[in-house]
């Protein structure tokens, strides 16, 4: 559809610009707020230009945290979040690709049933099964541990399904050629399927890393020891202080720092990510 109507052009750009402003303005405000001194956001006009407290705010959050609300230094919380997100993403991919391999390439009794059971768990995200899951984790003594933070979130029907769909598009002849070439099931998986799924794994890693990073409810439940706080739930604790005004400049510094890792992951893996979503290398 090629049209040449200047006013339509102007209008569409206007809508786009307004949209971008609506999305970007709060982020801008968070960055600005993190550079002002305490109180600047509570008194009269909200400042729109950077202040001069940037280094102080970030320095304090990274090294000491906010003792008034019981939040540990951000470095610790960022590290916890990083561990959680990476373990969840890597383990999800590892388990899903193996189960998808079993479902697609092996004939075993109740294979279809196994697939449907995995598929049905899509209907049961963490939030739905949170009470029983908490009970299990608590009984296993996994509260306040990295295991407790990550293991219940690792099983993934979505990733299994994605890998299954990808494996189904790999021609059977490839597997047969490998068999003729003397590659057993494990060798075929390692030498042929894994390299072929490389871009898919990268795309999934980006999505799952952000999924793990954004976890809020689950860490809130299973951690009571500040040593295991993650950054997303930590921010909530900072903002909700009793009998005092929240120190927005410090909270916003934490918010900006918490936003960084997902942004960096997307930027650095963008090429692979897009490739994994659109390209089929066959």
């Amino acid at each position: 559809m090629v049209e040449n109507r200047p006013w339509l052009n102007v209008l569409t750009h206007l809508v786009l610009v307004v949209g971008v402003i609506i999305i970007a303005f709060p982020v801008y405000l968070a960055v600005i707020a993190s550079t002002h001194g305490p109180g600047a956001f509570l008194s009269n006009v909200v400042p729109l230009l950077p202040g001069s407290y940037m280094l102080d705010n970030y320095g304090q959050m990274l090294s000491q945290g906010m003792s008034t609300s019981g939040a540990p230094p951000l470095t610790l919380m960022l590290a916890n979040s990083l561990v959680m997100a990476i373990v969840i993403a890597v383990a999800k991919i590892a388990i899903s690709i193996i189960s998808a391999y079993a479902i697609v390439y092996f004939r075993f009794p109740l294979r279809t049933l196994a697939f449907w059971i995995i598929f049905i768990t899509l209907m049961l995200p963490v939030e739905v099964r949170i009470i029983p899951t908490f009970k299990v984790v608590a009984d296993l003594g996994l509260l306040n541990s990295y295991a407790g933070l990550t293991i219940p979130l690792i099983a993934s029907a979505t990733a299994t399904f994605l890998f299954r769909q990808f494996f189904l598009t790999v021609p059977d002849e490839l597997m047969e050629a490998a068999r003729v070439d003397g590659a057993g099931p494990m060798k075929f998986f390692r030498d042929i399927l894994l390299p072929l799924s490389r871009t898919n794994m990268a795309a999934l890693f980006v999505i799952l890393f952000i999924y793990g990073w954004m976890q809020y409810l689950w860490p809130l439940l299973v951690t009571t020891d500040p040593k295991f706080y993650t950054v997303v739930m930590g921010i909530k604790r900072m903002a909700a202080v009793a009998d005092a005004d929240p120190q927005w400049n410090l909270v916003m510094a934490a918010v900006v720092l918490a936003m960084l890792p997902p942004v960096l992951i997307v930027i650095f893996m963008q090429r692979l990510f897009v490739k994994g979503l659109v390209e089929t290398e066959k």
Partner: peptide, 17 residues
């Protein structure tokens, strides 16, 4: 593999990577 034969497939089945 144990039969010691080699096969040429219609769609070649070359390992793409």
């Amino acid at each position: 593999a144990e039969r010691d034969i080699a096969m040429v497939f219609q769609n070649y089945a070359l390992y793409p990577h």
